[in-house]
């Protein structure tokens, strides 16, 4: 069986700046990979490349999703094929009703997968069930998308979308930041509920706490645009102790 995600020699730039500088990563079916790394090292840029964010130019390398080229696909086709990005900064969209948006989104994905579209009633029932999982207040459904949502509410809305769309590859970009302790546990339970042999995850985080709940199979450190170290879940604990500084000096020493 092909890997879910294969990234080879990925170079990407935004504006004048080269941000990803030769990144390699493989994610197998059912695996959870954590990505850690200093601010500005390129984690969100990687997430953006995978989701198809305009303005990031891939200058070299390749990305394959389930064995096929990913970079040639539009963002919406990637989403329908099963790639999901939970944004570090979810976008506020005044004037567009959240409920309407979520239903349109789910139905776009369902019809791509050859499933029937859900009507308003069935959608609402499903949505209520998923919202209960992340204890998202009902009234957030009738508000405009993320408009005036608190930081935590935005993150819950991201996870709600993930639970609805049931992606094969979920990329969570600092979903834990902005969540209170209880919400972090709830959201983690939601994420864990999606874990299965067919679903893989890329979890970008700065903190061990999330990884206590969503226990990763692998941990990678991204620095200066590439993966500089990989290990098991204990690597996260080690980083918590030592920080990235020691690591940077190591890589500087090994890669002059």
């Amino acid at each position: 069986m092909a890997q879910v995600l294969e990234i080879r020699g990925l170079h990407a730039r935004a504006g004048e700046k080269e941000i990803l500088t030769g990144l390699d990563l493989e994610v197998g079916p059912g695996e959870v990979h954590a990505i850690m790394g200093p601010n500005g090292s390129g984690k969100s840029t990687l997430a953006g490349v995978l989701a198809g964010r305009p303005g990031i130019e891939v200058t070299a390398g390749e990305v394959r999703f389930e064995g096929a080229d990913l970079l040639g696909l539009s963002p919406e086709v990637r989403a329908r094929e099963g790639v999901f990005l939970a944004f570090q900064y979810p976008v506020e969209i005044p004037g567009v009703n959240n409920n309407y948006f979520l239903k349109a989104s789910l139905n776009a994905v369902r019809s791509h997968r050859g499933q029937d579209e859900l009507d308003a009633m069935d959608f609402l029932a499903l949505c209520r069930e998923k919202m209960a999982r992340v204890e998202m207040p009902k009234e957030l459904l009738s508000r405009p998308i993320n408009d005036g949502f608190s930081g935590g509410e935005k993150k819950r809305n991201e996870i709600l979308q993930m639970l609805l769309l049931e992606p094969k590859l979920s990329i969570l970009d600092e979903t834990d930041s902005g969540l209170d302790i209880d919400a972090l546990r709830l959201v983690s339970e939601g994420v864990n509920a999606l874990r299965s042999p067919e679903r893989s995850m890329l979890v970008i985080t700065h903190y061990q706490r999330l990884l206590d709940y969503v226990v990763p199979d692998f941990v990678h450190v991204l620095a200066e645009g590439r993966i500089v170290r990989s290990g098991g879940k204990e690597l996260a604990l080690e980083l918590e102790e030592t920080g990235y500084r020691s690591l940077e000096s190591q890589t500087a020493a090994t890669n002059p």
Partner: peptide, 16 residues
Amino acid sequence: EDALFYLRTRGLDEDT
């Protein structure tokens, strides 16, 4: 652009 991208990452085509 950001809003457009956000909606597209949820499966909506560009026109929609």
